[in-house]
Simulated scan of single mutants.
Amino acid sequence: MLGQVLAFTLLLLTKGHQGQGSADHVVGISGEPVWLRPTSLQTNIYSAKWKIQPYSNSSNCFTWSWSNNSGRIEVRETLGQTPNCFNKSLNFTNKDFTLLIKAAQPQDSGLYILEFTTPSGKVQEHKFQVSIFDRVEKPNLVEKWKVLDGGICQVTLSCSVTRGGDVSYAWYRGSNLIQIPGNQTELVDKVDVNGLHLYTCNVSNPVSWASHSLQLTQGCQSDQDFTFLFILVSIMILLVALFLGTLTCFYVWRRKRKQSRKCRVPRCVA
């Protein structure tokens, strides 16, 4: 359990340069807790408060405020008093001013600012740039074929996912990465109609990845293959027609022969 917690913490916190004008970059998984723990804070702090600016909202949300007024500590929760401010389940620790998002969601992504003042009135900030991502689901991979000359076919592969947020796409032929410009959801390649080809689409975001592979075998046939198949089917149809025709003629001949035998008795004579 401890190993999982440490692994998750290392994944969650990707620290950037700290300072007055920079922010720590925090990456989280949807549905998992996210801790925003400031470091290198002064010990002599008069007041502190958390401000949240979601990507979906330009206004700040004030969630927790703390003050040490004449030795009396006061903590107030003000979440939801700002119009259009999201309502989340948050916890605040006044010992080290850590803010906990219990079950983070992609809409919780944004800028989180811990603002604190010293007894002299100096204001400082500690910023966190928070990005929450869904886990990437297995992508849907679709193939289309086009016949070219010389036993070559053009295959078009389309890769898509419905969850995962801002994702990156990578294409592989076998175990080799295909170098294509940009972040392409579609791959166009030329293959030998008689060959076996394994293609893989890998989709990833900063917290997870998923892939889908297709073994391309008989997806494309040449014009000669189609001609041979057409002739073969035509011959089979002709043979079946000849068999049915012969069987019908034999049935009619046999029926007429029986009638002819019946007519030879005396009662058949006028």
Rank of each mutant, 00 (worst) to 15 (best):
T185A: 06
A210M: 08
C263I: 15
V161R: 05
G165P: 02
L238P: 04
A241F: 14
L6S: 06
Q18G: 07
G164W: 09
V123G: 02
P33R: 05
F228S: 15
F92K: 02
I237K: 14
I45F: 09
T98G: 01
C268Y: 13
K144P: 01
F116A: 15
C263S: 13
T98V: 03
W171M: 12
P266G: 01
A270Q: 12
V203T: 05
K15G: 03
L11E: 01
Q218K: 13
P119D: 09
G195K: 11
G19P: 06
T248S: 04
G19S: 00
R255Q: 15
L11H: 03
N94G: 00
Q224M: 10
N202A: 14
V191E: 05
P83L: 10
A48E: 00
Q18V: 02
Q154T: 09
Q154Y: 01
S120E: 09
W50N: 04
V27P: 03
T162F: 04
L114R: 03
I113D: 00
S89Y: 07
R37L: 03
T118H: 07
G164Y: 06
F116L: 15
S40T: 07
N60L: 15
D223G: 01
D166V: 13
L198S: 13
E125L: 14
S67A: 02
T200I: 04
K127Q: 07
E186W: 00
S160G: 06
S234N: 05
Q124F: 07
I52E: 00
K122T: 13
K51L: 14
R37Q: 06
T248H: 05
K49Y: 12
L214E: 08
A270K: 13
G150H: 13
L79D: 02
K138Y: 01
G150N: 15
L244Q: 07
E186Y: 01
T43K: 13
W253S: 15
P119S: 11
R72W: 07
D225M: 09
K127T: 02
W253D: 14
I113F: 07
S234G: 08
T117I: 10
V123Q: 00
D223F: 14
H212N: 15
R135W: 00
